[in-house]
Each structure stands twice: as structure tokens, then as C-alpha cells.
Design a binder for these strands. Structure first.
Lengths: 309, 309
DNA sequence: TCCTAACGATAAGATTATCTGATGAGCGCG
DNA sequence: CGCGCTCATCAGATAATCTTATCGTTAGGA
């Protein structure tokens, strides 16, 4: 019977991911020779070459590639044993790797971390901010425990829970204050500023206006930048309610609410259906949801002040 | 992050299976203290008690039980990495754990082992002889690579390939030689000797006669015994064609073939759909099939001699 | 009630596996 | 042609794991 160790699997996984002995060793917090040796032993144990060492790079053989997939799956299961153990103890404790999209994170995160650590001091939150596809991939692969994204995700292996829905508000240069709110058709005639490609919020905004992406190449990398651009008179944009408090506080822009049906998005939390933390995550989603609720109330108040001010 | 080793998983698996530190240690080919230590470390790593050490026995906790299931699954995947590696090398080589039912094994096995090792000298065949349910269980759990049983098995996780169909012949005491062959209805009036419970061949025989099990408690544990009992005038029985050569050579019994539709069974080979050896197993099934073909020709010749002799 | 056998836990020393740091060899690039 | 980057190899150090011997507990029989 072939004798593989967990070490070998972990090292190989790192190597397969990074394609570089030195960096993989660093990721495993060991020296490069240690990794080389384990990989070599693994190849001997399996009786096949896992990767080709070309001068400038390391490439997985077809065999190595297929094996890497299986190994990843195994490591995921092994890591889940730990989660399962924690869940069995039935307390909200230990590491929680949480992903968030960039149009939610800056506004929701402080509140979430505050509420969560207040209610569960033993919890150890690691947050990663990425766009939806990256988050989903990491989630499915077990490198995240849960993610907060715009729904729907429609990934069959994931459970999704809606946290809240929020409207999009129109941000215009200050001289528009009090002007009529344009319909979605009229928006198409205006210069609409957008986030760069890959942000789901960009697509949602475009979809509301029922338009293609303009080819102006002025895309911003954050909502904050967008609002600044509007303040500079470069055009108009949309932002989610949640961002109102933070983003319009110090900018000289005019905020307006669309007529019904207002554009909106649903933000929710997703996790692997098979996650042993399911029960805990459901609890957490409630905490996050109420944090968001509080935030939206603040934002509404801020908008009121803004409009009156 | 929790650090579990493959050792710990293997030792725990053995312990969960055997429920006994000493025997589990023996199964792992280590000393009992070594196993105790690893289990203890595993419990510490997971932060939960895996089993209760009562004075006379060890019992898995609910947590341990659930964990054991996951661990088994993981170990199965890990072991399959080896199989996968072999399969990738695309040669028929290495260990092959093959199960067979007792009404096939004694007749087919010598020929199969001969043919297989002749064509593939590097193959290392381990055979286990058990009744169908045991074989299927071990197969599904990854403790066997393939099994030869009577079809259908109807286990959704298994692939089944028919190897051959064989008729059942009537075995009577010698004085019946040349007498009319009874119909299946008439069989019910005769004293039909059967294998003990659990053999699929017993059920197939009963089903052909369309009858319940008689309550005579004379069940035999092998076809060989059955034929001897017939020779001693205790009744009649059925045997599969394949057994004719071996079982009636030295017994003074009369063989007769039923009128069509003759009773029969289909013998086939099964393996996990997910087995990385699938390709190889398909090849092997062909070799086994042709071995069986040869055997059945021999058996037919033997029957001819018997009838004439 | 006491003794014994069975069982799992513990401890000390030996053994094996794994790691580090130094160094070597192959290769692309300036 | 030598430099820098990369992975492989080696020797000695360190850490993980094992074995043997022994202990404490408990159930069952004398």
C-alpha cells in the first residue's frame, strides 16, 4: 500500500498552486530543500512524475494536474474535520474566513467586526476583499468559510441567505440639487461614471439603465473615487444606500432617490452547503444582517441631512 | 489551523472499526502505546473526545462516530490516489483486491489467476471469498477493488459488467440416470437440498422452483457438500454449469439439463464507478470472461462424459 | 474479599522522519 | 562568459514517532 503523508499532500498542493518551489516552501513556512525532498518522495511513492522542472519554471504534468485536483479535495475534507469539531462543540469560536465584495466591505465591515467580536469574543475573523468570482472560487475550494456578495450567486454547491436589499441613489454634481430625478431612460443621455470591469455593482448599474458599457475608459476602482469624480463635475453615478454615510460626507455632491421602482441589489451571505459550520454561519448571518440594518438607518439619516443641508 | 497527520487518521480509523486499542494497534502493525498516543494527540488537536474508554470496551462518542465516517471517506480518497497513479501509468500492475462469491470462486479462481498472471506478471492479486452483501460493502468502502458476483447488484455507486450467463443443472442420485427431467413444479415435490442462508445461489434456486425455503435445516455450506449429499441419496440439488467439472468428477450422481427455459444466473464483475482503475478493470473483466468461457466448455465436455459414462 | 487477567495510560530511551543551511548543477540573459 | 535564478543534494541538527517496561483501573472468579 502506498504511504502518503499529509505533509506531502499539503506541500504538493502549495506547489501546484504557486508553481514555484521557493515560494511554495515559503507558503508552507519551511525551507526549499524540505519541500523538494517531500515532493520527490511523493513522486517515488506514486511512481510518477508530478511536475516538469524546466529551467525557468515548474509545470505540472498531466498526471500532476489531475492529482492536484484530488489532493485539493482531500485537504479540503481534512480541514473540514477541524471545522466539524468546532461545530460539534457548538460554540461560535475559532477562525472565520470571511470574503466581501469591495462595494460592501468598507461600509459593512467595521460594524460587522464590532458586533461579532462583541457578541463572540473568541471568534477570530479573517476578511478578504475581492470581486464575486474570486470569492466564490475560494469559497468552493474551502479557502473561505463564507462570503458576503450580491445575490443571486446561483452556484449549486452553495447556500445563500439574503441579508438585506438596498436601493441605489443617484449622485450628481451639487448644482443639480432639487432638480428632477431622471428616469432610467434619461440616465442613458447623461454621462454615467462606473466602476471598472468585474464589479457586480457596475453590471447592476448598467442593467438598470438598460445600456451597454460606454467606451470612455473612465472607470473608477472604488465608489469613493466615483463620488469624487462626480464632485469634480465629470458626470453622474449611482451608489448603494449603504455607502451614503461614508462617501458623501465630505464630497460636494447632490443625492437623489429614484422614483419607484427604484434600482436595488440584494446583498447576502453564501457558504458551502457541506460546511460543518452551517449552523454557526446562519447565526452569524443574522448578526451581520442586523449590523447592516443599523447601517442603513444611519445612511438614510445622512441622506436626509445631505438633502436638507 | 488544526494539524492532523495521515497516521492519526489511519490509526483512528482502525480503532473506530475494531473498537479495541490492542487489536487496532496490531492491525496498524505498531504497539498499543503508540496508538494511544496518536489518538490522544488527535483528540487534543480536534478539541473533543473521540471515544469513551469504559473498563471493558471503548465506545465512540457521537462526535467520534461522525468523525470516523468522514475520516473513512478521506482515507478512501487518499488510497485512491495510489490507484489513480497506477492507472495513469496505464499498465495493469500493482495490487488488485478481488472479491468473489463462494459459488464461483473455487471453479473460476484457478483459471483467472493463471490467465491474469500469465498476461500481466506484475499484477498482485489478493482474493477474498465472501457472500454478496459483504463483498458489496467492502467494495463500496474501498477495501476491495472489484468483485465477481451474480448480477444484478443494483448498487448505484457501482458499475457492473456481465461476464457470462450459465445454466443450472439438476443433480440426482445415480439411479435416476436417464429418467425424465422434472419441471420446476415437480421439483417442489422432491427433496431439494440447498446452500445455507445468505448465498445468492440458494435464492436463485428457490426462485426457479418458485417456492419458500423448506424448514428442514439441512443446508450445506458448499456446492461440494451438496453434491456429496445427493450422492448419499439425501435428495436432489442444482449446481451451476461451471461447477460440473470439479464437483461431479468423483461423485456418483446423475446430471440432467432442464428443458428450456433453463434456470440460470448471470455472473458479472462490479467496481466503484469512481474507481481510477476503471479502465484496467474493464480489461481484467475481459480476461476473466474468457477464462470463464474456457471453463464452461470444459464443464460441458465433462457433463457429456458423465452422461455417457 | 482478594487475586488475576485484560485493558488503556504513562514514561524513558531509541529510532526514524523531517528540517535547515551550505553547496552544486543547469540554464537563460546581459 | 559570468551573473542570477532555480531546483537538487548532502550532512548534521531537530522533531516526531515508536518500543519496551510499567502503572492504575476494573471485571470476574476463587
Amino acid at each position: 500500500m502506498i504511504h502518503l503523508t499529509m505533509r506531502q499532500l499539503r506541500y504538493f498542493d502549495a506547489l501546484a498552486r504557486l508553481g514555484h518551489f521557493g515560494r511554495a516552501a515559503e507558503a508552507c513556512a519551511i525551507s526549499q530543500p524540505a519541500l523538494s525532498m517531500q515532493i520527490k518522495e511523493m513522486e517515488e511513492a506514486l511512481g510518477g512524475v508530478l511536475l516538469e522542472r524546466n529551467a525557468r519554471q515548474v509545470v505540472l504534468t498531466r498526471f500532476g494536474e489531475q492529482l492536484a485536483e484530488r489532493v485539493r479535495e482531500i485537504l479540503r475534507s481534512v480541514d473540514e474535520l477541524g471545522d466539524f469539531a468546532r461545530a460539534s462543540r457548538d460554540k461560535l469560536t475559532g477562525r472565520l474566513r470571511l470574503g466581501m465584495i469591495p462595494t460592501v466591505a468598507p461600509y459593512l465591515l467595521p460594524k460587522v467586526i464590532g458586533n461579532l467580536t462583541r457578541k463572540h469574543p473568541e471568534i477570530d475573523i479573517h476578511v478578504r476583499e475581492s470581486k464575486t468570482p474570486t470569492l466564490i472560487e475560494e469559497l468552493v475550494e474551502g479557502r473561505l468559510d463564507a462570503a458576503i456578495v450580491a445575490l443571486p450567486v446561483s452556484e449549486p454547491s452553495l447556500t445563500e441567505v439574503a441579508l438585506f436589499a438596498e436601493n441605489f441613489l443617484l449622485v450628481r454634481p451639487p448644482e443639480y440639487e432639487g432638480a428632477d430625478v431622471p428616469s432610467s431612460e434619461m440616465l442613458r443621455e447623461m454621462r454615467l461614471l462606473l466602476l471598472e470591469e468585474g464589479h457586480c455593482f457596475r453590471d447592476q448599474a448598467l442593467s438598470f439603465c438598460n445600456m451597454q458599457a460606454p467606451r470612455e475608459m473612465l472607470d473608477a476602482s472604488s465608489l469613493s473615487t466615483l463620488v469624487q469624480m462626480v464632485g469634480a463635475g465629470m458626470g453622474v453615478t449611482l451608489i448603494p444606500e449603504m455607502a451614503v454615510g461614508v462617501e458623501t460626507r465630505s464630497a460636494s455632491v447632490s443625492l437623489a432617490r429614484f422614483a419607484d421602482p427604484q434600482p436595488q441589489r440584494t446583498v447576502g451571505m453564501v457558504w458551502r452547503k457541506t460546511s460543518p459550520l452551517a449552523k454557526q454561519l446562519m447565526q452569524i448571518s443574522e448578526i451581520v444582517g442586523s449590523a447592516a440594518e443599523g447601517l442603513r438607518k444611519q445612511a438614510a439619516a445622512a441622506q436626509g441631512r445631505k438633502r436638507r443641508g
